[in-house]
C-alpha cells in the first residue's frame, strides 16, 4: 500500500471474491440434494419472467427444502427498483 492507493479507492479483489462466493455457494447449497431438474427449471422460469420484467440472472432464487415429511419448492424473484415492463414483449401466441 502506498500513498497513491489512498486516493484510488476501488473495491478490493478479496471483497469481490467473497461476494461472488457468497452468492454461488448459497445457490449451490439451496439446490443440493434436490431434484436434478432444478437448474433447468430455474433457467426456464428466468426466461418466462424476463418476458415481462427485466430482471437480473441472480434475481431468481429457487430453494428446495425438505421439512420432515414434505418437500417445499420455494421460488423468489427480486424485482428491480423501478420495474419497467419491457415494450418488446412478444405477444403470447
Amino acid at each position: 500500500m502506498d500513498l497513491l492507493s489512498i486516493f484510488r479507492r476501488r473495491p478490493s479483489s478479496a471483497n469481490v471474491a467473497k461476494e461472488r462466493l457468497r452468492i454461488i455457494v448459497a445457490q449451490e447449497r439451496s439446490t443440493r440434494g434436490g431434484p436434478d431438474y432444478l437448474p433447468v427449471l430455474r433457467s426456464e422460469l428466468l426466461h418466462v419472467i424476463r418476458k415481462y420484467v427485466n430482471v437480473d440472472v441472480e434475481a431468481i432464487q429457487v430453494n428446495f427444502e425438505r421439512d420432515g415429511g414434505h418437500e417445499v419448492l420455494e421460488l423468489s424473484v427480486a424485482l428491480p427498483e423501478r420495474p419497467v415492463v419491457s415494450s418488446s414483449v412478444p405477444e403470447p401466441a
Binding site: S12, S13, A14, K18, L21, R22
Partner: peptide
C-alpha cells in the same frame, strides 16, 4: 495480501463456509 485486500481473510472464508 489480506491486509492489502488481495486475499480473502480467515473471517471471510469462515463466514462463507
Amino acid at each position: 495480501r489480506v491486509a492489502t485486500g488481495e486475499m480473502m481473510s480467515v473471517g471471510d472464508v469462515k463466514e462463507i463456509l
